[in-house]
């Protein structure tokens, strides 16, 4: 593995295991795709909270209990249910518990890895609303990983588009949706289904083999604008307009 992870000016990859452990949960929290399997089936909900609070802060157990209860109630789950076990909750409730666990230490960054993929549409809407409210209530950044462009349009401020493990475009949500510079982003947006969609649009071909990725621009085998240069040179990430970056040799063509 290579690369660096910067968080508040520090490179996280340089940290000791102990420092890393402290940052997890306390400064950076994570919620997952599949809330059904993310809680320890043998532990009461309350113990998940207490264990996390005591792992990071030296507080009295009375205070820890109070904070655990508040975190749960803030997610719309009744406080008496804190003594229940994970299997006594539905998927949407478990995801709200996961969010409450992520927030109980008031982190400055919440990473949400496809948080609604395994939930039904109504619960999805609930969870998204919660996440949006949190950004303001907790003064917290949200890093949302998703392939659902509808959610992106609704929740995000800045968008980074990844293809085959590489950053291909970065910009404000307005830039990305109104003026996509990378052919992959354009293909993604064209594939979104609208009410009036008669025929599905798709990007030709299939995702590349990541063990032996294509030379040059990784998207070139599927790109209708591809030129010889695309197979030879890796396009750098260029700022085509203020705050709007793309990694395409011909990005200026789409401005």
């Amino acid at each position: 593995m290579s690369g660096k992870i910067f968080f508040r000016g520090r490179d996280l990859t340089q940290l000791s295991n102990q420092m890393y452990r402290r940052i997890r949960g306390e400064e950076i929290a994570l919620i997952f795709q599949d809330p059904m399997t993310r809680l320890n089936p043998l532990m009461r909900i309350q113990d998940h909270f207490l264990e996390e609070i005591h792992a990071h802060e030296s507080v009295s157990s009375t205070e820890a209990r109070t904070r655990a209860r508040e975190a749960l109630v803030s997610m719309g789950i009744h406080e008496t249910r804190i003594r229940n076990y994970p299997h006594e909750f539905s998927g949407g409730m478990r995801q709200r518990i996961m969010i409450a666990l992520a927030l109980v230490l008031k982190p400055s960054l919440l990473i949400a890895d496809e948080p609604t993929t395994s939930l039904d549409v109504i619960v999805e809407a609930q969870i998204l609303e919660i996440l949006q409210d949190l950004k303001e209530a907790y003064h917290m950044s949200l890093l949302l990983i998703t392939h659902n462009l509808g959610i992106v349009a609704e929740v995000c401020d800045r968008v980074a588009v990844l293809y085959a493990g590489k950053l291909v475009e970065l910009g404000s949500v307005r830039d990305i949706f109104h003026k996509p510079l990378h052919p992959y982003t354009q293909g993604l947006l064209a594939s979104v289904i609208h009410l009036e969609t008669k025929e599905l649009h798709s990007i030709e071909g299939s995702p590349p083999d990541l063990i032996a990725p294509p030379s040059g621009c990784r998207f070139h085998p599927r790109c209708s604008y591809a030129q010889p240069i695309c197979t030879e040179r890796i396009p750098p990430l260029v700022e085509f307009e203020p705050g709007h970056f793309a990694a395409c040799h011909f990005g200026d063509k789409f401005l």
Binding site: R21, D34, H56
Partner: peptide, 14 residues
């Protein structure tokens, strides 16, 4: 297991 990964993400001691 998934819950082990999730516990690590909360900074629970190993």
């Amino acid at each position: 297991a998934d819950y082990v990964e999730a516990a690590r993400a909360r900074g629970i001691p190993e």
